[in-house]
Nucleic acid binder design. Sequence first.
DNA 1: CTGAAAGCGCTTACAG
DNA 2: CTGAAAGCGCTTACAG
Lengths: 342, 342
Amino acid sequence: MGMNRKRPVTRADIAKAAAVSETIVSYVINGNRYVNSAKRQRVLDAIETMKYKPNHFARALKGKKSNHILFIADDIEGDYFGKLIREIDSIAYRSGYFVTLCADHDDDDFVQRIYSHFFDGIIIGSAKFPLQNIQRLVDAGLPLVLLEIRDYSKVNGVYGLINTGLYQGARECVKYLYDHGRKHLLYIDRIDEKGGASAIDDWRLKGFIDQLREFDLTLTDDNIITGCSSEQAIIESVRKIFSQSHFVPDGIVGRNDYSACIAMKAVKTIGLSVPNDVAIVGFDNSRLARFSSPALTSMEIRQKEIGTIIMNMLNSLIDERASFTGRIEQYLETKLVVREST
Amino acid sequence: MGMNRKRPVTRADIAKAAAVSETIVSYVINGNRYVNSAKRQRVLDAIETMKYKPNHFARALKGKKSNHILFIADDIEGDYFGKLIREIDSIAYRSGYFVTLCADHDDDDFVQRIYSHFFDGIIIGSAKFPLQNIQRLVDAGLPLVLLEIRDYSKVNGVYGLINTGLYQGARECVKYLYDHGRKHLLYIDRIDEKGGASAIDDWRLKGFIDQLREFDLTLTDDNIITGCSSEQAIIESVRKIFSQSHFVPDGIVGRNDYSACIAMKAVKTIGLSVPNDVAIVGFDNSRLARFSSPALTSMEIRQKEIGTIIMNMLNSLIDERASFTGRIEQYLETKLVVREST
DNA sequence: CTGAAAGCGCTTACAG
DNA sequence: CTGAAAGCGCTTACAG
């Protein structure tokens, strides 16, 4: 709307003030043609004093960048994304972008809505965004960086992929517990409000399972608590597992620190001791891990570095897309921060 | 860029497919003129089958909505904003908006950059955004909703203001501690990476101070720890306060749960007991409060409701701006959730 | 009831 | 070295 908004300064105003043609103003702004230096200076002065900013819509209409990037995340609230978004925002701002943040949505419209807003680039940090939609975005030539929360090996084309080490990290959690004598391991998935289970191609879950197999530990449905829609649901599931006689866990891996803390609470209410009876490892190395009691051993994910790498990759894809022929990958290591819970 | 992006379907394609003029397509989409129902149906069918989405830039250029709103926050990482953003995103998506998230920035360019991106509305949840910039946005007629983290009574014009009860909440924290026999109270401000102190018009700090005065408690610089740029800095400040002889706190109010947890840690390292020697109250009622040990008494801020109210207010301001003549206010109550730390 | 046309603020191929 | 003009994808006042 904005019928009562002040009319913003346009390129025509600048042209008039600087006594040059509108064309000259454009070329000064875009720096892509020689312009007489006196004129250039007049234009720059006018821009400065009139506080002119180009209209991004008009530029975008002509095929220029919109200076908006989109970040699709499925756990906006968590510590993991909080840190990531903070870092991405900070770099993006310096590069002239605004970051639009969006949970992923199931409806068919979502991808179309993305198209129609002409984002310069997209970051996907969601375990639930359908692969075929990702493929559509890649096929459409949209600069795309994927956070490898799950297996994306089936996505073809030019895009960036950041392996944040979740698979190896999950395996190391299991190894650490195993090396400390824990052979009956329980995995606690995250809370999903709709009660959905993580897909088997979720890297953390897959790492847990693969490492259990490598150690020849028995693996049944009892080893994995998933599909819980609330804290209470997790607590009850944990209590149920522990009330059985045939499988009593002595080690727990949480998909994130939050899940691990909930499990810790459940274990304590049963009257068991952490870490003596049950050792617990979380993921994210968040504030929660530092202030829980006992303090939680947790797998550190370097969100700040990840943010930097995402933005570098995305900037490359946006500015030099033609120079890439396939997917670009980058691998990051995780690191176990040992505290009192193991 | 996007030189190798597929050309998106445009209004002209729809007109051709539906065998009508481009004008008709526009009127069908905008629903602001009578259109022959057979034609209308052909247009709708074409839109459906060709998955057409209007180009938002072009629409915005003609003065229509951009369908982007901006959320300026100064603590993206914290629990408070995480929940808020989640709720806002969810409502915004249903209303057809994308939410751009941005930390606040000091440079002069910031406001101009906001203008040039033509957001339909702006939400400000930052204690640091300069008042004069806010006034400029209001004066320009931009629909604006302010989260009352600090005193905005000097801002004139049409805008929305949401009083989240922080001032009363802070006073109640002090009252609760006072009623439980604590008369030597310490306030822990949040971490500020640049080492800046909260302005005195920060509602939580102001509530703390005012209530101390009302109770005739002595109030010196010793009562407030601020300007810390790290956890370690807070811990050292707390230890220093406790090492003095003339003022030994028996109660602590944290600006948020994080600050409160850090203080709790510091107090424990001194060898004091929580809550026996020192009672502690936090703000946000976050996960941290539930999983810290002892579990933290904390002031609950109803982020989900706040999110809903923000979006309702913003939608009203965007769609019916003309019907408002001054600022719209809404007040929310906070609620103290008592746990083990008091 | 409906269409051709002007115009939003830009960029840049084209023609000097 | 520089400007007039076409055009990006829309909306809507204007003229039938």
